[in-house]
Amino acid sequence: MSKSKILDISHFLPYQLVALSTKVSDAFAHVYSQEAGLTQAQWRVLSHVINIQFATAKQICELANMDKSTVSRAIKQLEQKQFLRLNQHPEDKRATVIECTDMGFDLYKQLTPKALEWEQVLLESFSEGEKDTLKKLISKLSQSVDKE
């Protein structure tokens, strides 16, 4: 194989994005793990449930880009901790909806300011214009992937 055909994976965009995502997720984990004993999956599920009325496991899988077994396990664990409860959908008796309990909502309200503060520190070296550009580029890249 000639040198020009060798892929330097460390400069390959998909690799860079995954590596960065892992670093950011791992660094952020202390906010919800140390403060509340939550796993990454539990934090993501709890956050999505709070933002969706009549949330279903399928919706959470799609929104959080997580597999069904991980989401199901996180839901079960959050239900055991009394942060979530499962109920029958008010309009579709065959469907189960996931709702946040008062305890879960209180925990979310406790963690949200810390999460936002952590994000602010992460981005403090960026100007406001750079932050806007970053968000636009991430959105544009995401839309590009969705088209495939």
Rank of each mutant, 00 (worst) to 15 (best):
A57L: 08
E99M: 04
M103R: 05
L17H: 10
L7H: 07
F12V: 06
E99Y: 00
K76Y: 05
K93P: 03
A57Y: 03
E62D: 13
K5L: 14
A115L: 02
F126I: 11
K140G: 00
V31M: 05
H48G: 03
I75R: 00
L141Q: 11
L7N: 10
T56P: 09
R44M: 06
E91T: 02
I60S: 03
S127E: 13
S72D: 05
L122V: 15
Q77H: 13
K109R: 08
E124I: 10
N51Q: 08
P90N: 04
K147P: 00
S72Q: 06
S69L: 12
S4F: 03
Q16E: 10
K68I: 07
Q88L: 12
V18T: 10
A41E: 14
F54I: 01
D67G: 09
A19E: 13
V145Y: 11
Q40D: 07
Y108F: 12
V121W: 15
V31L: 02
A55D: 03
Q143N: 05
P90Y: 11
I75Q: 00
S4A: 11
C100H: 09
D146W: 14
S127G: 15
F12H: 12
Q80M: 08
L63G: 05
N51H: 04
K109T: 06
Q88D: 04
G129K: 15
N65P: 11
K135G: 03
L137E: 08
Q80Y: 08
L107H: 00
V49P: 01
I52K: 02
R85K: 10
L134E: 14
H11W: 08
D26A: 08
G129S: 15
T112H: 03
L78I: 04
Q143E: 11
T133F: 14
V71K: 01
S139M: 05
S33G: 10
L20C: 06
T70H: 07
F54K: 07
H11F: 04
K81N: 07
C100M: 06
Q42I: 04
C61F: 06
L137T: 02
H30V: 15
W43N: 11
L78T: 02
D132V: 05
N51E: 04
V145C: 07
F54Q: 04
F12M: 09
T56Y: 06
C100D: 01
V71F: 03
A74D: 03
K109W: 00
